[in-house]
């Protein structure tokens, strides 16, 4: 199952640079990034090619970072692509804690990443419904 890194960050100039500097220096490639802001602090979420190593780099440099399991679903990059996923999640009463998406190849495929309470169970449900899920390797070697 793929892992995302969640990082606690104070909302101040230079904070994002520090994180990206640390990762770039160690050859970590960032696949996707989101920032949630809450006034004086925020949470940075990253999908990278080597989450374990990246997390160690960040915590080793005094940042608070944790690995979280996420579900990554392949979506066709066309109108309505996301709707089917939404409908399926609703039918199974699955609540999304947080989500983000990114396009892989324009006009062809995109990835929808969701954070849920019980990712393993959700993976099984989605697989049974015929969705194509991305495993750890698939996601990082895109």
């Amino acid at each position: 199952m793929p892992h995302q890194i969640s990082v606690f960050m104070e909302n101040r100039p230079g904070k994002l640079e520090r994180v990206t500097d640390l990762l770039a220096d160690q050859g970590i490639n960032i696949r996707a990034i989101t920032i949630t802001d809450s006034g004086d602090f925020g949470i940075l979420k990253l999908l990278v090619n080597d989450p374990g190593k990246a997390c160690d780099i960040l915590t080793g440099n005094g940042l608070v970072a944790v690995l979280k399991e996420v579900v990554a679903i392949r979506v066709i990059d066309s109108p309505g692509g996301l709707r089917d996923i939404g409908a399926t999640l609703t039918r199974h009463r699955i609540n999304i804690d947080d989500a983000y998406g990114f396009v892989l190849r324009s006009g062809q495929s995109a990835v929808f990443v969701i954070q849920v309470i019980n990712p393993e169970e959700v993976e099984v449900i989605l697989k049974n419904e015929g969705f194509s899920l991305l495993g750890e390797k698939d996601l990082y070697q895109l």
């Binding site: 809450s38 608070v64 979280k68």
Partner: peptide, 14 residues
């Protein structure tokens, strides 16, 4: 905010 305090949900931190 240390490891033990950190939640990656903004509402929990708030």
């Amino acid at each position: 905010v240390g490891e033990e305090l950190f939640s990656d949900e903004i509402k929990q931190l708030q």
